[in-house]
């Protein structure tokens, strides 16, 4: 439906998209809550649950931004990604798994909520980054057609992108800190150079550079947009790649 909106741009499809998104989100919330009450812990114990919960967080962030800025077309850039994530989550084994007892404590809640919220904010930042790049292309090349008329101004896109990174980055930072403290509480060591930890650190450094360049060298607009789109790839790899390709003790399985 979101892609349809991108193509036709009629009001009816826009409305349809919002209705479908809200309906989907409501059902999804129900699913998350059910899993939470049945298993008694955060629904992030398997990769399926994690992907599904991650998607849920992204849609939540999308709704907040949509409500706050009323950016047309944001859904067309975020929701297809959400759809792919949801699809990939649905092919993963979906049974409820008991969580090892040693992991069951309040750190679990804190760490996962922080991590997921942060990454969801950065995911939506990726969407606005791509929108910025398309709009910038139009203005720069003087081809003012197609999406140019419907995308919002460069400033608004840059502003939302920056806002999301400034929200996502501290959350990611706190997630890594709580992760380290949690690790200390269980295994007695803060840092074990596990691939998950390493890739989280890489992602964190990446966004740290983005923010630093913006604040000191005045990097904004196109450069930040490109970086925030790339940063999301790092997040996706940390999220799925590490679990599927590398050996990690970090959760989900």
């Amino acid at each position: 439906m979101a892609i349809l909106d991108l193509m036709t741009g009629s009001k009816a499809t826009s409305k349809g998209m919002v209705v479908f998104a809200i309906a989907g989100f409501t059902l999804h919330t129900l699913n998350v809550v059910l899993r939470l009450t049945i298993s008694g812990h955060m629904p992030t114990a398997s990769l399926h649950e994690a992907a599904s919960f991650f998607t849920w967080c992204i849609v939540l962030v999308f709704f907040i931004i949509e409500y706050r800025y009323k950016v047309g077309l944001l859904g067309s850039f975020v929701l297809p990604g959400v759809f792919v994530l949801m699809l990939s989550s649905s092919v993963l084994p979906r049974e409820l798994r008991p969580l090892p007892v040693i992991l069951k404590n309040s750190w679990l809640w804190l760490h996962t909520i922080l991590a997921f919220a942060g990454e969801a904010a950065l995911a939506v930042a990726c969407g606005t980054g791509i929108m910025y790049l398309i709009q910038e292309r139009h203005v720069k090349s003087k081809k003012l057609e197609g999406l140019y008329h419907r995308l919002p101004s460069l400033r608004v896109l840059d502003e939302i992108n920056y806002r999301l990174i400034t929200i996502g980055f501290p959350l990611l930072t706190l997630a890594i800190i709580t992760g380290a403290l949690w690790s200390e509480a269980i295994w007695g060591t803060f840092w074990r150079w596990d691939p998950k930890e390493v890739w989280s650190l890489i992602t964190w450094l990446f966004y740290a550079i983005v923010l630093h360049a913006r604040l000191t060298a005045g990097w904004q607009g196109r450069k930040t947009a490109i970086l925030s789109a790339m940063g999301f790839i790092a997040i996706l790899f940390t999220f799925f790649g590490v679990n599927l390709l590398l050996k990690t003790f970090h959760g989900f399985e």
């Binding site: 709009q135 203005v139 003012l144 140019y148 101004s153 460069l154 400033r155 608004v156």
Partner: peptide
Amino acid sequence: ELARKIFG
């Protein structure tokens, strides 16, 4: 119109 698309 162009200025609006750049600066809001």
